[in-house]
Design a protein around this nucleic acid. Structure first.
Lengths: 113, 113
DNA sequence: CTCGTATATGCCTTGACACGTATATGCTCC
DNA sequence: GGAGCATATACGTGTCAAGGCATATACGAG
């Protein structure tokens, strides 16, 4: 379990990280929002903590977990060379993202069939 | 093996992707550059192909593999919310990256040789 | 058509890890 | 100090994927 990529390969861990992006949370809050058993949450938090993704501060019986940026920035850094590559394929990208989130109708072209 | 994150969790697969970012490569070329057994390369390429990370064109007995941008852009998209978060921690980031790559002396001392 | 090269696939073993359940630790309040 | 809550850890189990090795398929050259 060395690399940051293996850490974020786990869906529940990604969910936890996404939760923490807004604000710090206690274990119980995470447990409730993600509806997963408490030991599972604690174990994933342990992995995330040891990998430097999160840190905890003690508040009586609770532990408040918050994000730490470095490991995800490492992912971002690995991605950098590819960004340059796919800037040549912008059209394909937009089409792809549109398929994923058909929400924002990016200003439709008055395109006539 | 559903999510793109599980795909890039494998170090050899990340190595293959990094190889392909410069230009398309045949299986044999990948095999030699990464010094891994050919069946291993083929299996990883299969995973990458089925997940849409690469595509192959046939050239006689060879298959030339090239990158496809979409799946990595999906990773990039997942990372987006966190970028906003860590823009508040830029200093810590820079310190971190400096520790990782002490090469580029961003602008500190005019260190020349 | 046979041989050599390039790539893919099948089978087997092994190891890692996620989960469930049970239990331990720690803190607060009475 | 005992009860109750919040969190962590231990153990056993099942699953799944990566690697090694052997072999199959495909193509080109002679």
């Amino acid at each position: 379990m060395e690399s940051v990529f293996e850490i974020i390969a786990e869906p529940n861990r990604r969910a936890i990280l996404s939760l923490l992006v807004s604000s710090e949370q206690s274990v119980g809050e995470i447990e409730r929002q993600l509806d997963m058993p408490q030991p599972t949450v604690s174990k994933h938090l342990r992995v995330l903590r040891e990998a430097g993704f999160v840190e905890a501060t003690v508040d009586a019986q609770r532990r408040l977990y918050r994000l730490k940026p470095e490991p995800l920035q490492e992912v971002d850094a690995w991605l950098a060379p590819f960004r340059q590559f796919w800037s040549a394929h912008v059209d394909a990208l937009e089409r792809h993202l549109d398929r994923m989130h058909p929400k924002t109708p990016t200003k439709k072209k008055t395109r006539r069939r």
